[in-house]
Amino acid sequence: MADRQASWPAAAPPPPGYLPSNRAGQPQPSSFPGLPPRPVYREPHPVSALPVVSGLAATTLWFALFGALGHDLVSYAWWTIVAAISAWLMALVLTLVGDRGVAVGIAVASGVGLSLALGFVTLRWVGTLDWPLW
């Protein structure tokens, strides 16, 4: 006859902060009797609105300064491409080691700025049938 396997060991208690707590610091009871309370999941690096808005504002100023260097559509488009590449590199650096909210603002503003510039290039291309960036 086969030997009977031992029962499973008791589960370890959850780590501190895993169970949600009420104002008294005690875990909240489940809405269904007999079930454990629901876990609360938190983002380890939360993003708030103020850093995103500051990234948007800084990148908008960045694109305005670079766009002001251009004297016609071709130079404006090339300066905008340079500004977008440098902004994306900064967003990548900020994503890895800095504030992710600012990185999100930079990425959004640079995407909008580059789309706007290349939209103007496309309109010129459609109107003249000549690609203006070469």
Rank of each mutant, 00 (worst) to 15 (best):
A2C: 03
A2N: 11
R4K: 14
R4M: 12
A6Q: 15
W8S: 12
P9N: 10
P9R: 06
A10Q: 13
A11Q: 11
A12R: 10
Y18C: 06
Y18G: 05
L19C: 08
P20T: 05
P20D: 11
P20K: 08
S21N: 12
S21D: 10
R23C: 02
G25A: 08
Q26A: 08
Q26C: 00
Q26F: 01
P27Q: 11
P27K: 13
Q28D: 06
S31C: 07
F32G: 09
F32V: 15
G34Y: 14
G34P: 10
P36L: 08
P37Q: 09
R38W: 02
R38E: 07
R38Y: 06
V40N: 06
E43I: 06
P44T: 00
P46F: 15
V47D: 15
V47H: 13
A49C: 02
A49W: 14
L50C: 01
L50D: 04
P51R: 02
V52K: 14
V53W: 10
S54V: 08
G55L: 12
L56Y: 02
L61D: 06
L61R: 03
A64R: 12
G67F: 11
A68L: 12
L69M: 07
L69D: 00
H71D: 01
D72N: 10
D72H: 02
V74L: 05
V74A: 09
S75D: 01
Y76R: 08
A77C: 11
W78S: 01
T80H: 12
I81T: 04
V82E: 01
A84W: 14
A84C: 08
I85G: 03
S86F: 03
A87R: 03
L89C: 13
M90N: 09
A91N: 03
V93T: 06
L96H: 07
V97Y: 08
G98S: 08
D99P: 04
D99K: 07
D99W: 11
G101L: 08
A103G: 05
G105C: 14
G105T: 14
G105I: 15
I106K: 15
A107H: 08
A107T: 07
V108G: 00
V108F: 08
A109E: 02
S110M: 07
G113S: 15
G113E: 00
S115W: 14
A117N: 01
L118G: 00
G119M: 03
T122P: 00
L123I: 07
R124T: 04
W131M: 05
W131A: 05
W131H: 10
P132F: 12
L133S: 06
W134T: 07
